[in-house]
Design a protein around this nucleic acid. Structure first.
Lengths: 198, 198, 198, 198
DNA sequence: ACGCACGGGACACCCCGTTCCT
DNA sequence: AGGAACGGGGTGTCCCGTGCGT
C-alpha cells in the first residue's frame, strides 16, 4: 500500500470516530486535525472537502459494524441462530463499540432529518436497507428450510428487529447504562424462540 | 397575557419546530428569525442566548408529546389498555406529529452524545425517565390490580417499549414510511396481549 | 413657562453637555437618559429623534458661547478693545467653559467631516460664519472710525483670529493644560496692539 | 515582503483614510471591508479588533504627515526657513492632503475628548508633542545660532504655530475653502519674518 | 407627561471551511 | 504535508425609536 493510501485510511479511521461522536455537521476540520495529527493541507490532499471525508468516514464506520455481523454469521447455519447472533452483536456493541459514539446509521438518520447532507442521508438509507435485507433474507431462507414459522412476515420482523435494537442502542447511549440494550436483546431472543423458531 | 409573554411563547413554538427539524446545534439564529418573523433584537430580548431558547423549545416540544399521552390516558383505566393507548399515540405521531422532525428526546439524545449541550442532554434524560416511569408505574399498578402478569419486569418492559417505539420512529423518519412504526406498534400490541395481560 | 417647555429646556441643557463631551454620534440615548433623569418616553415626547435633539443641543451650546461674547462686548466701544474682549472670552473658557467638552462648533466641524449629520455640519458652518462676521464687522467698523489700521484685511483677520483661538482650544483640551490657549491669546493680543490698532 | 505583511499594510493604508474621514468610532468594520476589498475574516486575521487597527491606522496617517515635514526639512539649514517650510507643508495639505479627512491628530484629539479610546488619545498627545518638540528645537537651535531672536519663547511659539495651523486646517475643512489656511499661513510667515527672524 | 416593555436594525468579533503557497 | 491567508456566516450586544400603560 502506498504511503498516500495509508495516510488516507488513517484519516478515514480517525474521522469516523470523530464524526460518530461529535456529529457530521458539528465536527470541525480542527477536530479532524487533532484526531489525525495532520493539518488541513494534509487532509485536503486526500479529500475534496469535509462532506467527501464524512461520507468516506460513514462508510468506514458502517463497514466496521457490518464486519461484526459477518464475524458472528459464521457461528451456525440455522436461521434463528444467525438472528440471535445478530442480537449478540448488538449486545457486544454496548461493551466494545465498533465505532465509539453510537450507531453511525442512526446518528446519520437523525442528523440529516430535514437538513444536513442529502448524500449522507442516502448512505444511511442504503446501509439500513442492507441490514433489513440481511434479516429478511435470513427469515425467508429459514422459512424455506423449515427453521422459521411460516406466519412470520419477514419484512415486518426486520423492521421490528432493527427498531428495537437501534432504539435500545439510543437509550443505552443516553444513560450510559447497558440495561436498556440488554432488555431489548433479551426480548428479541425470547421472541425468536417463542414466535419465530419453527 | 402580556404582549411580551405572548411573543415569548410564539418564539418557543416556532423554535421548537426549527430545532426539532434542523437540530439544536445546526439551527441558526437566522433560521429562528425566519421561523418567528422576528429579528435577533426581538428574540434576544426574551432569551439570553440560543441555548436558553433551545432548552425552552425542547421543553415545549416534549410537553406537546406528553400532552398526547395525557389525552389518550383517559380512555380506559385498565393498565394494558393504557399501554395500548400509548402505542396508539406513537402510531398517531406518524401521520400527525406533535412536533415535526421526529422525537425531540431521541434527537436531543443523539445530538448530545459526547458533544453538545450538557443541559440539553440532561433534559433529554429527564424526559425519557418520566416516560419510563410512566410505563413502569402503569405496569406495577396493573400488577397490583391483577391486570398485568406478575412475571413482567416493569423496568425492563419500559425499556423495551420505548426502545422499540423510538427506534421505529427513527426508521419511519429515515424512510418517510409509516410501516416500520406500524410494525413495531403491532408487535408491542401483540406482546401486550400475549405476554403482559393477565 | 409651561411644565412641558421647562422639561424641554432641561433636556436641551443636559443634552448639550453630553453631546459636546461625548460627540453627537457617539452619545447614546441612554447617555441622555442618565443626564436628564428622564426615560426615552419622556425625551421622545419633546423631540422627534436623536438628531433633532442634537441640533437643538448644538444651538443651545453655541448660544451659551455667544452669550459670553455678548457679555464682554459691553465693555468698551473701541474696536480693538472689543476684539481683545473676545480674546478674553476664549481665555475664560479655559477655566470656566460655557459648555464642557470643548468648542461645540469645532467638535461638530470635525465630527461631520465627510460623514455624520449634514444638518449639524450646516449649523456649524452658520455659527462659525456668524463669528467671522462679528469679527469682520468689528474690524471694518473700527477702520471706519479710524481705530483700526487700514491695511488690515478684515476677512483674513477673522480667519486668523478664529483659527488661532480654536486651534488653541483644541490643544488645551488635548493636554488639559491652559498654556496653549494662553499663548495663543497673548499672541493675538500682541498682534492687535502692534499691527491692528491704528 | 510576505503576502500577509502586504495585506496588513494595504489594510492599514485603506483604514487610515476611512478612519480619518469618518471618525474612529463612527467607522464600521463594514466600511473597512468596502475600503480594503477584504472581509472581516481577512481583516481580523491581521488585527485583534477595530481599536488595534484604528491605532495602527492613526500611526500610519501621522507617519504620512510627518513624512511631509521631513521632506521639506531638507530645504534649508536656517531655522526660520525650516519653520517657513513647515508652514508650506500645511499650505500643501490644503490641495494635496497626506490623508484625506483633515489632520488625524486633531480628529483624534476632538473625538477622544471625555470619551472614546484612551489609547488613541494618548497617541494623539504623543504625536502633537513630537510636533511641538520639533518646532521648539528648531527655535532653540536657531537662537543658539543667532538666527532667531532671543526674546522668542520657544515653547509658546510652538503652541502658537500649531494652534494657528491646526485651527486653520479645521476652518478650511469646514468650509471646503483654502482661504482660512492661507490666511493663517501668511500670518505665521509674516510673524516669522517680523518677530522671529533675528 | 412620563416610564417601560418591546422590537427592528446594525455592528463587532469569532470560528469554520477551503485554497494557495511553500 | 504544513501553515498562512482569506471568504463566509453565525452569535450576541447595543442602540434607536415606538407604543402602551399610568
Amino acid at each position: 500500500m502506498s504511503r498516500g493510501e495509508e495516510t488516507r485510511r488513517h484519516i478515514v479511521r480517525c474521522a469516523a470516530e470523530v464524526f460518530n461522536r461529535v456529529g457530521y455537521a458539528a465536527a470541525t476540520v480542527s477536530d479532524l486535525e487533532e484526531a489525525t495529527g495532520l493539518r488541513t493541507g494534509g487532509i485536503y490532499r486526500h479529500f475534496g472537502g469535509k462532506e467527501e471525508l464524512a461520507l468516506a468516514a460513514f462508510d468506514h464506520a458502517v463497514g466496521c459494524l457490518e464486519a461484526r455481523f459477518v464475524e458472528e454469521a459464521t457461528a451456525s447455519p440455522h436461521a434463528v441462530d444467525r438472528l440471535r447472533a445478530m442480537v449478540d452483536v448488538y449486545r457486544g456493541l454496548a461493551t466494545e463499540p465498533a465505532v465509539p459514539g453510537g450507531c453511525p446509521v442512526m446518528n446519520a438518520a437523525i442528523e440529516t432529518d430535514a437538513a444536513g447532507s442529502a448524500a449522507l442521508r442516502d448512505r444511511a438509507r442504503r446501509a439500513m436497507d442492507r441490514w433489513r435485507q440481511r434479516i429478511r433474507a435470513l427469515v425467508e431462507e429459514g422459512q424455506a428450510r423449515g427453521e422459521v414459522r411460516g406466519d412470520v412476515e419477514a419484512a415486518a420482523f426486520a423492521n421490528l428487529f432493527l427498531s428495537t435494537m437501534e432504539g435500545a442502542t439510543m437509550l443505552t447511549g443516553l444513560y450510559g447504562d447497558r440495561k436498556p440494550l440488554m432488555d431489548a436483546a433479551d426480548h428479541i431472543d425470547a421472541h425468536l424462540e417463542s414466535r419465530v423458531r419453527a
